[in-house]
Design a protein around this nucleic acid. Structure first.
Lengths: 259, 259
DNA sequence: CAGTGGTCTAGACCACGTG
DNA sequence: ACGTGGTCTAGACCACTGA
């Protein structure tokens, strides 16, 4: 019945067995040849599935030896990554949001550079406080390019995921680059999250683009550091985490510099 | 002359062109057929290279249309990720370290669970303060399993990367899971980093395993939040970032809970 | 509708590990 | 020595994009 690529079916099946702990860390998988026969696929197709799981950090291979189970893979949903709502529901919480402000403005120099437009062009800025089970845990300050911002006006910004709703309009987010650091809560942050000033916040700055490389939005999200953490898997062959010196890009807030 | 897989040569070549900005975001790559001819490879080999670059967030594809350049990929060296020294040098800084303490202890309950050993077994704990150009920027509290810890005693822990030195002994780190959050500096943190108490720190807790899934170490690294940030790329097809609620695992430090 | 990427096959040779 | 994963080829069909 299913209209699904065979390599994905194989990957899903193996992932399910790992998550169900039928395959525990250290376990050796059957050889690619055996898997190919078992699934009625060619070896190339089996390898496509295995490489997918390797990218998720679930398994590893060494030449000459069989594939080995490393650990349960992360959930790995791209939508859960952009969307607070989708993530919260997957965690079993009731997501909420309070639209504090949606305004049309002219792009600052920073907006222009990040969104690849000219300074002074129209952009939309959205400020929301997101809640989990009534408790505010995150402040979201997002800047959208004009065509997307115009759509936002007609959307329900209070509770629904805007990314799901934008998807219905054919707006697809394909890629995002995240910069994560720790900063003290400003006076406004403290007021919105109902916490003391200078409480450590986990800040995630994000720039998202479409499938064709067109910048769609950038966002400055600040989480209560005592409630939310980020988890990243990476392996020797794949993974995309990098440390970075907090650069001079932030001339706005007086940052302390090295030497 | 070169003893290198063809698909890696192709990936390196295309990545170099993107980094050199010969290929700018939005640019359409030649078709897979054309690339195959240009590099004297089969289409399958070219696709292997393109999929590598897709995993790095550098390019994206849509059925029916050509591959599109998205952005410059991250450096993506696994060793730079584990190793403060390797990272610092790549950033053009002089890494330094002060070994504050290396001790042999009995595994706590948490050690035992993380390293998959029995509580009470021998482990080694290393505390280091790492510096960039003489300025302390990070505190590293690492716990190693006994066989690795024993090697540490003979290593130069003051300035060299222990991971590079362990590699010479055949100890290979293959996979790591990172949990990143923000916490206030404790009194000891503040003293070691020479900063005020409760300054926001970027905490990275890491668990590393070998190629066969054997846990090798876990670490609690705390960075000055105003100096170091983490950067992550992720795409709809690949990427491994996940938000997580700070769970009850940390019963040690009194964390505030949600409802 | 011509060209593109996505999927899949059947085979081949090699370098490496484990017994 | 044998089996394993890593690499590579040549060809096929399909779904989709874009002119």
């Amino acid at each position: 019945m299913r209209e699904e690529p065979l390599h994905r079916y194989i990957a899903d099946e193996l992932r399910r067995q790992i998550l169900d702990e039928h395959l525990v860390p250290g376990y050796q998988l059957p050889s690619e040849h055996e898997l190919a026969q078992a699934f009625g696929a060619s070896r190339g197709t089996v390898r496509q599935a295995l490489n997918q799981l390797r990218g998720e950090g679930a398994i590893a291979a060494r030449r000459g030896a069989r594939w080995v189970v490393l650990a349960a893979p992360l959930v790995q949903s791209f939508s859960e990554l952009l969307s607070f709502s989708a993530w919260a529901r997957a965690e079993g919480h009731e997501p909420g949001g309070t639209e504090v402000e949606l305004s049309r403005r002219r792009a600052t120099q920073h907006d222009a550079e990040t969104l690849n437009i000219a300074a002074g062009e129209s952009i939309y800025r959205l400020l929301r406080v997101r809640t989990l089970s009534e408790t505010p845990v995150m402040i979201e300050r997002t800047t959208f390019i004009e065509p997307i911002g115009r759509l936002l006006v007609d959307l329900d910004l209070d509770s629904e995921s805007i990314y799901e709703q934008l998807g219905d309009h054919g707006i697809v987010f394909a890629r995002a680059r995240h910069t994560i650091d720790a900063i003290p809560a400003t006076a406004e942050d403290a007021r919105l999250l109902d916490i003391p000033r200078r409480t450590p916040l986990l800040r995630q700055r994000r720039a998202s683009t479409s499938q064709t490389g067109q910048p769609l939005e950038w966002s400055d999200d600040r989480y209560r550091g005592d409630v939310v953490a980020f988890v990243i898997d990476n392996t020797a062959m794949s993974g995309n985490l990098e440390r970075l010196l907090a650069a001079e890009e932030d001339a706005e807030s007086g940052e302390s510099k090295l030497s």
